[in-house]
Each structure stands twice: as structure tokens, then as C-alpha cells.
Computed example of a mutant assay.
Amino acid sequence: MLKRWAALLLCVIALISFSACSNNNSQADKPEESKLKVTVTFNAIKEFVEAVGQDKVEISTIIPDGTEPHDFEPKAQDLVGLSTAKVFVYNGLGMETWVNDALKAANNASLITVEASKGAEAITNTEPEEIEEHGQYDPHIWLSLKGAEMEVKNIKDALVEADPANKDYYEKNCTDYISQLENLYNEYNEKFQPIQKKSFVTGHAAFAYLCRDFGLEQNSVEDVFAEGEPSAQQLTELVEYCKENKVTTVFAEEMASPDVSQTLANEVGAKVDTIYTIESNEDDLTYLDRMTDNLSKIYDSLLQ
């Protein structure tokens, strides 16, 4: 492991040097307005930074769209932005297990690092294998509107620390975005409360925080970290669960066993519909668009 990260560090330094030369040439030709350089780990975090920073920030994302974040291990080229950034924002709660090693490799002494989920009331994993490999917490807090509010506030604090001259700008944007999150939460909290049916089935167990927001219950084809397909016994139990809870829709995500979701749906006479985990840029929709779509589909499925 030590040799691996030493090699990674050398690669990062070489790439930074090349990048610096290119940037110098570019700036000589055409000077640009200085923006606060922020590196983030994946799409949902990027959107939160965009909401607060807007035109004051320049964002680079480490985990490419279409990549399963739970399985991601950074290469040297993925860390170039981190080495020159002023702010680094990651989700935490075990989502990015490689962060500490990446920070050492980047060797950016002036970097302001923020764990966006800091202060959250985390949901604890129960499977021993998950805890051993990924840690004790479910990391999917961004799929909770209340969790998103906390992450946005932590991001705002980091941007203010890095760029205090624009404090009022960041605080206003933060307040405005949280107001939108609150409005969406209030709308669906009112809708979900009177419904008797509370259970839905997803491709992987990413929606525990969303369930906590609204008093719902999820069951899933794959575990919290989208690993492995269910055994024959687990699939049988899922079939029984769907029948007992009158599940009419099995939700699937692009990177979490859509084929098994379809098999399960066929067994119980349900339909398959998509749901967003917001780990990648999907369908060119914003975070709020995708959360609205998720909540609408879950709500409609519970009415059937």
C-alpha cells in the first residue's frame, strides 16, 4: 500500500507540473477572472457546491459520471484538481474510503477540507461484512432532504472560510437553496403522513435516510453498498415481502442490478421503474428535479 501511494504521489506531482505549465501559457494569452477552486468527490456534492458558490466557484469532480462510487479507487489523474484546489468537499460516513490516502498524495497544505456530512445523525450498518469493508455507517445522507440541508450548510461554512470577502453572497445562496429543500420536504411530508402503506423496494439500500425523513420503509435487491446479487433464499424472501406489503413497483437504479429487479417484479406481478441515487449526472436533471421525481414515484407507488 505504501509503495502504491508513493507512486501515486509522484504521478500527481508530474501531472501538476504539466498542468501548471499549460495554465501559465493559457493565462498569458487570456487572463480570466479568479474563481475559488473547489474539488468534490461526486455529483450530489458538486450540485450543493454549485448552489452555494454559483459563479464564484470553479468545480472539479474526482469520481467520473457513470462510475459506481462505492467501488471507486482514484488514479493519479483524478487527483490533479485536488492538488491545486482551495477547498475539498467529500460526503464522508465511509462513502469515500480513499480520502485520507488521497489527501496525503495531493500534499496540499493550504487545502480546506470539509466532510459534508459532519454533525449528521448517522444510520448504522448492521451486516458484519459491510462494517468490516466499508465502516459502520450508511453514507447515503444526501438522499435525505434534511441531510442535504446539513451538507449545504457545511459547504457554505467552508466557502466562507476560503473566501470571506464573499460571505454574504454564499450565505444568501445557502439560505435560498435550503428554502427550496424545505419546501420540497414540507410538500411530501404532508402527502406521506396519511398514507397507510409505507413500504417500497429499491435496487440497493440507499434510501434509509429518505425513509427516516418521512416514516417510510425500504427493502432492496442489493445491500447498502450495491454489492452482490441476492441468493435464491434472499430472492424468495423479497418475493414474500413484496406480496405481504402489496408492492406494485420495484425501483431500479442504473448501476444496481436492474436485471434482478426485473426478475423480482415479474415474480410478484409488479412493474419496474427508475429511481435516482444522484451519485452521477443523470438525465441532465438537477438534484431538486431528481429528488422531486424520486418522491413523486415513491408516493404514487404507495397509493396503488
Rank of each mutant, 00 (worst) to 15 (best):
L9W: 10
L9R: 13
I13P: 00
I16T: 13
F18Y: 06
S19V: 00
C21G: 06
S22D: 06
S22A: 14
S22H: 03
N23T: 11
N24Y: 10
K30T: 13
L36S: 06
L36R: 06
T41S: 15
F42M: 15
A44Q: 13
E47M: 08
V52M: 08
D55P: 11
K56L: 11
I59A: 05
P64Q: 05
T67F: 03
E68D: 15
D71W: 00
P74H: 06
A76N: 08
A76E: 13
D78E: 01
D78H: 15
S83I: 03
K86Y: 00
F88I: 14
V89M: 03
L93F: 08
M95E: 01
E96F: 12
T97M: 10
V99D: 08
D101Y: 02
D101C: 00
K104R: 10
K104L: 13
N108T: 07
N108G: 10
N108W: 04
A109T: 14
T113Q: 10
A116C: 09
S117G: 08
A120R: 02
A120E: 06
E121T: 14
I123Q: 05
N125K: 03
N125W: 00
T126A: 11
E130Y: 02
G135H: 02
Y137A: 08
D138F: 03
P139V: 12
I141D: 03
K146C: 02
A148K: 06
A148P: 07
E151Q: 15
K153Y: 01
K156H: 01
D157M: 06
D157H: 06
L159D: 07
V160D: 04
N166F: 09
K167F: 00
Y169D: 08
K172C: 01
D176L: 07
Y177I: 05
I178Y: 01
S179T: 14
Q180Y: 00
L181P: 11
E182P: 01
Y185I: 04
N186D: 15
E187R: 12
K191V: 11
Q196T: 13
K197Y: 00
K198A: 02
S199N: 13
V201F: 01
T202Q: 00
T202F: 03
Y209D: 10
L216K: 04
Q218M: 09
Q218C: 05
N219V: 10
S220G: 08
V224K: 07
A226R: 07
G228T: 09
E229K: 14
E229T: 13
P230D: 09
A232S: 13
Q234G: 01
Q234R: 15
Q234F: 00
Q234D: 14
T236F: 01
T236Q: 14
V239W: 07
V239D: 09
Y241R: 02
C242A: 15
N245I: 00
K246Y: 02
V250I: 15
E253M: 06
M255K: 13
A256H: 11
S257G: 04
P258G: 12
P258D: 11
V260E: 05
V260I: 15
S261Y: 03
Q262D: 11
Q262C: 01
L264P: 11
L264C: 04
N266C: 00
V268I: 15
V268W: 11
A270Q: 10
K271D: 13
D273L: 12
T277H: 05
E279I: 12
E279F: 02
E282Y: 13
D284K: 12
L285F: 05
N294D: 14
L295V: 12
K297H: 12
S301M: 07
L302K: 09
L303V: 07
